[in-house]
Nucleic acid binder design. Structure first.
Lengths: 158, 158
DNA sequence: GCAACTTGGTTTAATAATGCAACCATCGGA
DNA sequence: TCCGATGGTTGCATTATTAAACCAAGTTGC
C-alpha cells in the first residue's frame, strides 16, 4: 500500500480519533462550527482554504456524523452544516489544543484571544483529569489496561 | 502560494498547536514517548511508519522543544529521544482525543484499552473544564474574548 | 421576468507530502 | 575482524493540497 495510512482499524482510540478529525482543516472547521458558522461560504471565507478542499472535508465530516446538513435557517434554498452531538463532543479536544499552545508556545504574546466563562467573563481553568474518587491525575498517574472483554490482546499502547 | 498552508503566524492558539503537532504521526510519536519509548527503532517498529518520515518528524519535534536528544540510557553510543515538559504537556490533548473516540466512535468495541488511574486501577473520569469558581463548563458556557493587551484586533474565532 | 450577482460547488494542473524499498555508515557483540 | 543491529539517507511512485478558472442553481434589483 502506498496510500496515506489509515488508522480506521487501529485499536488505539487516539489513532481512531486522528483518523477521523486529525487533519488541520477538519479540526478548524469544527472550531468554526462551534463558533456558530454554518454556511459553506462562511467556512471558506473565515478559514481561507481552497473550496475543493472544503468540499471534501465537509463531506467527510457529514459522513462521519460530525456535521449534519439542514435547510438554511434564513429560509433560502441553500443548506447549512450543523454540528451533531458528536461534533460538539470535539470541544474538549480544541480546549486541550488551545491550552497547550497557551502554556508552551514560544510566542504566546501572538495569541489574541482568551477562552472565558460566559457567566463571569473570566478565563477558564485548565482542563483537569480526575480519578474516580476525584484525585487530580497527571500523565504519570495513569496507565493503560486491556479492556475487559476485548480478546484481541494486541500491542498495548498509550 | 502553493505550499501547504502554515498556521504558525495565526493568532488562534488551536491553529498554532495544530501547526506544531497537528499531524497524525507527531501526535502518535508523542503518545509512544509518553508510553516510554525513546529509541528511533522503537518508534519505527511500534508505529510502523516509514523511516524517512520518522526522521523528519523526530527532527521537527526536537526543533520545537517537544522532544530532546539524550545519550542512550543503556550506555551505548546511540541517542534517545526524551519528552520535555512541553512534550509531556501534550498528555491532555491525547486524553481528549481518546475520550472522544471512546464516547462517539461507531465501533467502540474495537477499542482494546482503557486509561486507568494507576493507584486504583480504575478508569479515569472524563476531562473536565471548570470556571474560576469551579462551575463545570460545556462548550456553550464559554466564549472568546480578545486578550487584554493584544492590540491586533483581528478576526475573533474559536 | 430577466439580467446580474451570490452561493456552492467541480475541474484542472502544479506543487508538496507521504510511502516504500534499497542503500549505507556506524556501533556492538562474538 | 566479521556480522548483525541501529539509525538513518536517497530515489522514485503515489497521493494530497493548493490556487485559479469555470459553472449551474438560487436570489436580487428593477
Amino acid at each position: 500500500m502506498v496510500k496515506r495510512t489509515s488508522f480506521e482499524k487501529d485499536d488505539c482510540p487516539i489513532a481512531r480519533s486522528l483518523d477521523a478529525i486529525g487533519d488541520w482543516w477538519s479540526m478548524l472547521i469544527i472550531r468554526e462550527a462551534l463558533f456558530g458558522r454554518r454556511r459553506f461560504g462562511e467556512f471558506q471565507k473565515s478559514l481561507g482554504l481552497a473550496k475543493n478542499i472544503l468540499t471534501v472535508r465537509l463531506r467527510s465530516l457529514v459522513d462521519q456524523g460530525i456535521l449534519k446538513l439542514a435547510p438554511a435557517s434564513d429560509g433560502s434554498a441553500y443548506q447549512e452544516y450543523l454540528l451533531t452531538p458528536k461534533g460538539r463532543g470535539v470541544f474538549p479536544i480544541l480546549v486541550a489544543l488551545r491550552q497547550w499552545s497557551e502554556e508552551f508556545d514560544v510566542h504566546p504574546e501572538e495569541i489574541t484571544t482568551v477562552l472565558v466563562d460566559k457567566q463571569s467573563g473570566r478565563p477558564v481553568r485548565k482542563l483537569e483529569l480526575y480519578s474516580e474518587d476525584r484525585r487530580l491525575l497527571g500523565a504519570g498517574d495513569t496507565a493503560l489496561k486491556p479492556r475487559p472483554g476485548s480478546k484481541r490482546a494486541r500491542r498495548v499502547s498509550a
